[in-house]
Computed example of a mutant assay.
Amino acid sequence: MRNSSQGFTLVELMVTIAVAAILLTIGVPSLVSMYEGFRANSNVEKIHNILAFSRNQAISYGATVNVCPFASATSCGTGTNWKNGIRVFITDAGGADRELRAIDNFNSNDKVKGPSGTITFSPEGLSSGGTIIYCPGGKTAESQSVDISTSGKVSYGADGSSC
């Protein structure tokens, strides 16, 4: 009498591996794109929140608040690379800057474009204005932005802006 053994044959195993490879080849690019979308949404929300916070602090304390790209940990410098992070400084009556909040650098594959120099909120809540554009993976088609009007209103901007 013949004993039946359990298990897979080599052919069955090879077919299973081939099907799995085809599914991974199709599915992985979609997952990368989805991850970039989630990352962009999260970072644009962080940028929006830090700008709204800055305006609120300027009004609450009756002081000038500066939002700038990271150049120095002690004050707003002349940096223009928003990708390295965003810093919020309040200027006190003595003219000294004090950091209120910060966002550390963004993903190395992403581009962040903002105004050259600082965004300033006055004690009345008015702003110097500007737009910050976040491009996940450097892709213009998937970019998102945050607009700051001169009246100080912080809002989500148009998608698909050039980086």
Rank of each mutant, 00 (worst) to 15 (best):
N105Y: 05
S151P: 06
S116A: 10
Q57R: 12
E142R: 04
M34G: 11
A18K: 07
Q144T: 12
A58L: 06
V154P: 01
S116W: 02
A21Y: 11
Y35N: 15
A73D: 08
A102H: 10
I90R: 01
F53R: 04
R87E: 02
I22E: 13
I103R: 11
L51G: 03
E36G: 12
S72D: 07
T78W: 02
S128V: 01
V32K: 11
I90Y: 00
G114Q: 01
A141F: 00
A21F: 06
T74W: 00
K113W: 01
R39F: 11
C76M: 00
R98F: 08
S128N: 00
A63W: 07
I22H: 11
S145W: 05
G129F: 00
G160W: 06
V19C: 07
T118Y: 02
R98A: 10
N66E: 13
C76W: 03
M34N: 14
G138C: 07
P29T: 05
T120E: 07
I132E: 04
V11I: 15
G137A: 02
L31Q: 13
C68S: 03
V67S: 00
V19R: 03
L31G: 12
Q6N: 14
A63F: 11
T140Q: 15
N49S: 15
I133M: 13
S149T: 13
L10G: 14
D104A: 14
V67F: 04
F53N: 12
F38G: 14
N41K: 15
N81P: 01
R98D: 06
R55Y: 01
E45W: 14
G160C: 08
G79T: 02
E99N: 07
I22M: 15
N84Q: 03
I17E: 08
L51A: 12
Y61I: 06
E36L: 13
F70R: 06
R55H: 09
A158T: 13
T91G: 06
S33V: 13
L51W: 08
S33F: 11
M14T: 10
G114M: 00
S155K: 15
Y134Q: 04
I86R: 00
I90P: 00
T25P: 10
V146I: 12
P29A: 04
L10Y: 07
V11A: 13
S145R: 07
T64W: 01
M14D: 04
F8E: 06
M14Y: 05
I17S: 15
S42F: 15
Y156C: 12
Q57F: 09
C68I: 01
L51E: 09
T118H: 00
V67I: 10
T131A: 07
E45Q: 14
T16F: 05
G160P: 04
I26H: 09
C76S: 02
C135A: 08
F70C: 01
P123A: 06
L13E: 13
A93I: 08
L23T: 14
Q144W: 07
D147A: 10
R98T: 11
V32G: 02
F8K: 01
Y35M: 11
N66W: 13
G37S: 12
D92F: 10
M34R: 15
E99S: 07
N3D: 01
V112D: 00
V44M: 10
F38K: 12
G157D: 04
P136I: 04
A102W: 09
L10C: 11
R98Q: 09
T91L: 13
A18G: 13
N105Q: 08
V146L: 02
V146W: 03
C135Y: 05
V11L: 14
G160V: 02
M34E: 14
G27I: 14
P136Y: 06
P115G: 02
M1L: 05
T118E: 09
